[in-house]
Each structure stands twice: as C-alpha cells, then as structure tokens.
Design a protein around this nucleic acid. Sequence first.
DNA 1: AGGTACTGTGGGAGCGCTCCCACAGGTGAT
DNA 2: ATCACCTGTGGGAGCGCTCCCACAGTACCT
Lengths: 351, 351
Amino acid sequence: MASHGARGRGGGRPTLEEVAARAGVGRGTVSRVINGSPRVSDATRAAVEAAVAELGYVPNTAARALAANRTDAIALVVPEPETRFFAEPYFSDMLRGVGAELSDTEMQLLLIFAGSDRERRRLAQYLAAHRVDGVLLVSVHADDPLPDLLSQLEIPAVISGRRSADETLPSVDSDNYGGGRAAVEHLMARGRRKVVHLAGRLDVYGAQRRVDGYRQALLDAGREVDDRLIVPGDFTENGGRRAMTLLLERCPDLDAVFAGSDVMAAGARQVLREAGRRIPDDVALVGYDDSAIARHMDPPLTSVRQPIEEMGRTMIDLLLGEIADRRPAVSRGLEKRQLVLPAELVVRASS
Amino acid sequence: MASHGARGRGGGRPTLEEVAARAGVGRGTVSRVINGSPRVSDATRAAVEAAVAELGYVPNTAARALAANRTDAIALVVPEPETRFFAEPYFSDMLRGVGAELSDTEMQLLLIFAGSDRERRRLAQYLAAHRVDGVLLVSVHADDPLPDLLSQLEIPAVISGRRSADETLPSVDSDNYGGGRAAVEHLMARGRRKVVHLAGRLDVYGAQRRVDGYRQALLDAGREVDDRLIVPGDFTENGGRRAMTLLLERCPDLDAVFAGSDVMAAGARQVLREAGRRIPDDVALVGYDDSAIARHMDPPLTSVRQPIEEMGRTMIDLLLGEIADRRPAVSRGLEKRQLVLPAELVVRASS
DNA sequence: AGGTACTGTGGGAGCGCTCCCACAGGTGAT
DNA sequence: ATCACCTGTGGGAGCGCTCCCACAGTACCT
C-alpha cells in the first residue's frame, strides 16, 4: 500500500536490480539485454524489455562508466577563440557533419574551446581525467602541443588536415593538391595564358600542397613554372592585397589568379579593380574554400570546395574505429588511418 | 624493482587508495583534501598534496559521479537548429558569458541542439539519464514542452527571457519594458511628435513588454496612445516592410518609428526610403537588439542593447545556486529567482 | 577527577553497473 | 551410455569514489 506503479519509492530512479526482479531474471541477463548481446533467448528478452518499459528504466551512465571504463562521449576540440569559431563557416559545417554521423550512436559530443592558455590548461586537466573516449581536433597548427599530449595520454584522436606529409595521428584531409590542380587546369582550359598563384602561409601543409598542385598543372600543360609568380599571403584580406600588388608588378600581363583562399581573393579583387583590370574579362580569379564570401562577391567567385561536412563524418568514423580497436588488447595494425577526400571546383562568374 | 616513480604499474591511473598509501594516511583523508574540506590539519594536507603531485593523481569522474550522485556538468540547450545558432550573435554572446562564468568552476559545459524532433527525443533520453546537474535553456518559445519536462524530472534549470508574466522557472530576462520606454523617451526628447511602434510578435512576452514600455512613455509625456499606430511584425525583414507600409498609410505624418527588432527596422528603412522619407531628417528610426545589422546600417541604427553576455553569466549564477540548494534536503525558500537586467539605448545617426 | 565538546582521522558500506566464472540443461557425436 | 560442447542464465567481485560512523586525542569546563 506504499508506492504505486512505475518507479519505486523515494523518487529514485529504478536500477538494473529492480528491473531484474520485475522481469524475474538475474542482473546479468538484464545487462545483456540492455547492451544488445545476442546470447539471450527471445522470450527472456521480451520479458526484460517489458520490465524496462514499465519501470521507465534508464541506465546510470556513471555506474556504467565506472564499471566499463568508458564514457560514451567524445570531444570536438577547437584550438581557437570562440569568435573565430562563430565567424568561419568551416566550423559549423564540420559540426553538422559530426553531429549527423553521431546521431546514430549513443555517443555524446562535447564542444571544447581551447583558445586561451587558461582554457588549454583546463582542457589538459580534462583529458587527464579521461572524461572522453576520444578527441576530434580541428584546425591544428603545425607546432601545437595538443596532438602529442593526446598520444601521451593514449587517448584516441583524429585531426582534420595534417601537420606534415608524414602525419602520425589518424587524420582526414581534403585533396589540396588536386584542388590546386583543378583550379589551374580550369583557368588554362578557359584559355588563360599567364596564371599566377597567390599562395597561403607556406608553413601550413595544406597551403603547400595547393602550390604543388599549381606547379604540376602548369608542368603537365608543358608550361614553365616561374617561382616569382608564386607569392605567399597570410590568409588575410590584407595579405591578399599585398601579394596581389607584388604579382602585378612582377607580371603586368597576367590574365589569371589562383588564390589560396577566398578571403585573399577578396583582397586581390580590390587591387585588381584599382588597377583597372576587369574580372573576368581581363583577369580570371579563382579562390579556395567556397565560403560565403565567394558566393556574395561581385562577380561571384569561382572557388575550390572542400567537403567539410563529409570530412566531419569521416573523422567520426575513424575515431569510432580507433576507440573500438583499443577495447580488446589487440591492435589490428595500421590500416588506412590517413584519409584524403576529394576537393571540387565550383565555377562561377569570376573565371 | 618493478615500477618506477610516477604512476604505478600497468599504465593505469593512480587511485585515491594509492595516494593514501603514499601519503601514509587513510582514504577518507585524501578525499577530504581533494574536496577542500577544512577539517584536515595543515601537515596532513601538505603530505597528501605532495603525494597527489608525485603520482599525478586525477580523480576519476565516473566514480565520483556514482558515489556522490552528481555529474559536475551542465547543459546549454538550444531549442533551435544549428544554423540559427551560428547565424545569430545572440547565442555566441550568451555562450561567451556562460563560458566566462563557468571557467572559475569545475563544471563542464555541454552544448546541445534540440532543433529537430529527433534531437529532442535524444535530449529527453539524455535528461532522463540525469547526465547533467542542471540545464540552461535559451530562446524558449511559449509552448515549448521542455521546461515542463525539466521540472518533472526535477532537474535544476534556468531559462533566458520568460514565457509569461508569472514565470515559474528561474529566469533571467532583460528589461524589455524599460528598453521600450527608453527608446520612445529618446525619440520624444529629440523633438519627435508622432512616434509609432513597429512591434514584434505579440505572443512573445518580451515583445509585449516593449509595447507596454512604448505606451507608458507616451502616457507619461501626456500624449495619447493610438492602438492603430502599434502594428505587429513577425521579427522578419519582410514583416517589417509590411508593417511599415501599413503604418505609413495610417499615419502619413509620422516622424519617428520604434521597431521591435533591428531586422524589422531594416525592412522599415527600405519602405521609408521608397516613400521618399529621409532618415533621420524626416523620420527617426530606433531598433532593438543592437545587432551587427544596426552598426552596419546606413545610417547606423540607434538600438536598444540587451546585456546578453551578462545575462549568460547571471543565468549560471542562478543555476549553480539552484543546484547547491538541492543538495541538502532544505529548500531555502523562494528567493529572487526571476531576474531582470537593464537594457541600454545605444544612440547612433538614425535618430 | 570526571564530564562535555570539539578536531582530526581511519575505514566500512554502498553507489549501479560490467565482466566473467560457474553451472544447468540440451544436443549430437562416439 | 558417455563424453564433449554448445546456449542461456545467475550472481560474485570489483570499478574508485563519497558519506558517515566510530574513535583517539586534546582542550576546557565544572
């Protein structure tokens, strides 16, 4: 005459034990049903599921984490201040891909910013406490200590892009080389004779690869590569302006510019306008990233699109694999752990 | 002769027990030191802290959560699709305030989107599992079932804004009434004779309060309020255009418009331009939100600023209080649980 | 001297799971 | 019939903490 129906007395949540009692089975059996083990007869499974439904049972995550030594959570770590995170579509696209791929899973996603030193210290503490099963690291700089910290703590991790040609961590990159090639081949196919390259920061691996693509496209077409026509910007609008100015000086008869980012292309466009060059009539312009800037530029900018959302999805796949691999003490050896996804040229009016 | 120095054998992390052994004290004492209990002598505390440092001890969160029945995590729930989250400065400001206030704490912040039905079901499951100690609910609609779910699960929660005049949940709102008043008083002080109001959706409590402020400012100045000069838009640019058109019809000699949001003000501006009214010469215009739109409008828009970042900080304060209150079985009664922060008029060239 | 009341400390019990060993009962080979 | 070997099941042990009771030691009152 005390309690009544669903959940026992005291407002506490039902436990495995209570479900077991209700279903007339043992604790182990309920656990097996909850975790989808095949070693349960259909009749028993049905009985347990009924009891779960009646009691409104929800597993206690903390207890599970303690007993099984896993958290069912992964972190998306953004080593940038929040402002950049909100400003750049890169991150929201990535987040969408990650979220989509994760929604089929029981895994929980945590978003962690590590822009300031203080935040980084917190993060280190957090990782040391093993509060996540794995980490997704986006936008890593070549000298970032985070990747090393992660492997030292033996926490599964996947990075977007890569730090160098011989990246050791599992990674998902886009084909910067192919993207660069495609941009330049497109410009040549449009009949452009003098294609110059406004490069990104050359200490960023991806930017370097775009340069390689630029080079190879010219060579394959039997043209010469003039290193003086490859001028690095710093990924900013101002850098794009400076580099473009230099390029115009060095090569007044250029008729095509391949820029390593849309933002730099925007800077270049201003300089070209001021120099009286019409786009695309006098000079064709191609950017990189296919960001909002590209679509809203006047004229709309041809740009190389990276499949960021898909990269996010792929990173999750890789990471879940890494996590699964580490559960039994067998490492199934190194499979494909560095993936490269294709980039795609989006042609608009600027070329 | 087996292991060496920091952390024992087997790569496992050190436990409380090991720290206790190392420091030559009992388990309970170490726990007390870790949790900052004052009931420990200075000498003992120092010994324990040394052992902690030597072993690189980090508490196991899962064990703590299981034993103490808390998670040290709170969730920021955004009942919107991710796109809106990234598009509106409101959320990033809020997140900044929340993050700042939380960084002094051990609390972890989770960001959860609940835009789609699917995401909502996941969230419900998540909350039922009590995976967070508390919830911050931003941008709640009047008919949202989430607040009720939270109180049913007895999870501490704080909402931004409020659903009605008699909001039951702890909440942090900004002074929409005062903001509306300030806008209108400012327009009258500038010598405007005919101030009309382009209102927001009237089923949104905050929008309603802005109308109240508009009314009262006029009444206090001894003017009449004509309800036909209060036209609701729907917070969109188009809605602003439609409402403005109507207002011009009803009151051709208006010389000031108070709009319930910057976006609607932008729509109103277009209609005014097309009607040949100059801003601010013929018509003064004031918006609400002080968003990026306001700063970039031509002319820059006078607007009412809400202290969103501070609202975020305050929400955390309230929530942490709620959580703390629920730990001992004493409810210290209802204190100030519905806070209202002042709004501030930012004057620019449009008025 | 005995009482009362603190402070500081040790360690048992228990949080709700998972893991795994033990074992019953069935099945098919020898 | 005997053995080997499955499938399905129960339940003990233990994950690493917190909570709390017990108790030694000291201090200060009567």
